[in-house]
Design a binder for these strands. Structure first.
Lengths: 219, 219
DNA sequence: GTGTGTGAAAAACTTCACAGCT
DNA sequence: AGCTGTGAAGTTTTTCACACAC
């Protein structure tokens, strides 16, 4: 077969555009909360350090998003982006690994406003299992599959040590998890049907060093 | 001026390649520690879910990195990547913001092995200033400029609340910081001479949701 | 045979520039 | 005037395919 038949609707947003949609959303929420009801691509670009054309191109993947001569209506755009990203509903999330990072995530207040809620937490360490964090009690990781099925969880955060990450992820996939946010410093190799987003703390610093060193020798 | 005169040496690694260098480095360290002394682009690719051609192209930016018919010598490649990234020496780092995330970073053991060390921590909350975390005592953020100059710090981690992030970053830049790892859910707008890498927790989940939802409707 | 390095082709992404709407 | 949407141009990045080395 030469090609996949394609929905005629949207020409598939590039990967980078999807990331920026999240940034637009955040900025739009802020602007809206400050009482602004319309915004232009130029202004949005200034706030996010992007060229206006980039903003318009990204938003054009949403279909009709703005009005020529007027700009974008903040509330409408917020709704449109949320529907596109799939965050126009609540997403329960499982947390696996409740060490330092996992516990920080349990206490992190930034998830709820975006519709994400950690509804179950797991660890393999007997000293950690059974401890309470807010409303949640850490369960043994052996119960993760049950919990995922029972609570209809589709997303998981992996915050276990590096050497346990791949096995943990395999297990989650087997239990039906469709997306993993990975904090372990390992590249997870998983079926292409499972989405993975990596958050790597040390690598961020390495990228920074490269840029800083480059900055000096080059212009 | 039509064009910047360029060092004839390396054709400037693409941004994505630099990110992958960090991944290669991590994987090479693991392989080396398991006793392997040579590795092929095919194998490295399998471990990181990349095509062999991509691996070779990335490594070719380092200059002569491997040997035809043989592969890459792990230790040599490790050294070469470290020199390229600039991580062949120690980098002291300042941490600004010692709330939940900041404290988790203070306890995170993953920085030291890569040559990064948090050597000073700051906060503006009087309840947090003065508390000890390991060998460090949290200082008042007003002392950050002094500390940066005195300790020759060039990199900072920003882990303050969103509404304080831009002002904090401005302050750090004024104090001479050259690179910022930003955990606050805000896009920092700074001079182009300052490198910024963003780590956004909620955005990672949003990207995941988009991928998961897309996965179903499309193939 | 296995394996790298690389020019060239292909694909993906960004930026431009302008038609058209308010 | 100001603004969006978009085809086309321009740029960057990935992938291919093969010459050459062990």
């Amino acid at each position: 077969m030469p090609e996949q038949t394609e929905f005629p609707i949207s020409p598939v947003p590039p990967k980078g555009a999807v990331q920026r949609l999240s940034l637009y959303l955040r900025e739009l929420r802020k602007s809206a909360s400050e009482g602004r009801d319309r915004i232009s691509s130029t202004r949005l670009g200034k706030l996010l350090d992007l060229k206006p054309a980039q903003v318009r191109k990204d938003l054009s993947y949403l279909g009709q998003a703005g009005q020529p001569g007027v700009g974008y209506v903040c509330q409408d755009l917020i709704g449109l982006i949320q529907r596109t990203l799939g965050t126009d509903r609540k997403w329960p999330v499982a947390l696996v690994g409740c060490g330092k990072i996992g516990q920080a995530l349990l206490g992190y207040g930034g998830f709820d406003p975006q519709g994400f809620q950690i509804v179950a937490a797991f660890d393999s360490d007997p000293d950690i299992v059974g401890t309470a964090h807010g409303a949640l009690t850490v369960q043994d990781v052996d119960q993760v599959a049950d919990s995922i099925r029972r609570q209809g969880i589709r997303l998981a955060i992996v915050a276990v040590p590096a050497d346990a990450a791949q096995a943990t992820a395999d297990r989650l996939v087997l239990a039906g998890i469709e997306g993993i946010l990975n904090f372990a410093p390992v590249v997870l190799v998983l079926p292409k049907t499972v989405r993975v987003v990596a958050v790597d703390l040390a690598i961020g610093l390495e990228q920074l060093v490269f840029g800083v060193v480059r900055q000096l020798e080059n212009g």
